[in-house]
């Protein structure tokens, strides 16, 4: 079986500074990969490279485009890249305010992708939006409210609904639980795990929180100073870290 996403030796330099260097991995359909590492280790740069938000200096990123097989993303036109980004992919921002349109209602936020791909029936768009609000445990009665009136956790769930409404196959998440209260974090993780299993989503999750990785991810990519220092199954890496940096990372988790 060929992978959903194949990354070969991608690098990105910001002048003298290394964003990320020589990263390679494969991701299969339905698989969740967590990228962990300290801040400044190149996690977010990697995510932006994968989602074609920035172009890589070297290497290639291939994606299984429906009906076309593995295609190098650099060879796709801008229109095709955008199409991927709003149908087959999702991108959950760390700060929900970056991923949502704060000046339109929750329903419009969820419906935007549907309308972008050509839905022109108000009633159907609204029904789908209501359905998705319920799936992410938001009160469907608040469909016409602005996201500004929602709490941080609700905004994050709304952002997730907005991304999943077109049934993407691959979702990128940048610290989806950071900045949330611990109890809210737990519920969000629960929800994410459920959705990922139900929908058979593949996901790349950037996080500095090893607990998030432990709960959600099948595999782990440990980054430091722009390079991948260790990869493997999540439990294997966390229970038996090989690289000194991973050992340090695992050892530094607070035990209460």
């Amino acid at each position: 079986m060929s992978p959903l996403l194949r990354v070969k030796g991608i690098s990105k330099r910001y002048g003298e500074h290394i964003g990320c260097a020589d990263v390679s991995f494969e991701l299969h359909a339905g698989e969740v990969l967590a990228v962990v590492g300290e801040s400044g280790s190149g996690k977010s740069t990697l995510l932006q490279l994968l989602s074609t938000r920035i172009a890589s200096d070297t290497g290639s990123i291939e994606y299984q485009v429906t009906g076309r097989g593995l295609v190098d993303l650099a060879h796709l036109s801008e229109a095709e890249q955008r199409w991927l980004l709003r149908t087959d992919w999702g991108y959950v921002e760390q700060n929900p305010r970056d991923g949502l349109r704060m000046n339109v209602s929750a329903g419009a936020n969820v419906g935007e992708r549907l309308m972008a791909v050509g839905a022109r029936h108000y009633g159907e768009i609204r029904n789908t939006a209501t359905d998705w609000l319920q799936r992410v445990e938001l009160d469907a009665a608040r469909i016409d409210e602005l996201p500004t009136g929602f709490s941080g956790g609700m905004q994050q769930r709304l952002q997730i609904a907005r991304n999943l409404v077109t049934r993407p196959r691959l979702v990128f998440m940048d610290e989806p639980t950071a900045g949330l209260d611990v109890s809210v974090q737990a519920r969000l993780l629960d929800l994410l795990r459920e959705l990922v299993t139900d929908l058979g989503l593949a996901a790349v999750i950037v996080t500095h929180d090893l607990a998030v990785a432990r709960l959600l991810a099948h595999r782990l990519l440990v980054m430091r100073q722009g390079r991948v220092v260790e990869t493997g199954l999540t439990d294997q890496v966390l229970d038996d870290p090989q690289h000194p940096y991973t050992q340090l990372l695992v050892a530094s988790v607070l035990q209460v």
Binding site: V104, S105, A108, G111, M115, A116, R126, I143
Partner: peptide, 14 residues
């Protein structure tokens, strides 16, 4: 890419 304009119309109806 004109989905955005329909978001405005959706918002009106809502």
């Amino acid at each position: 890419d004109y989905g955005l304009m329909h978001v405005k119309l959706y918002e009106d109806i809502a």
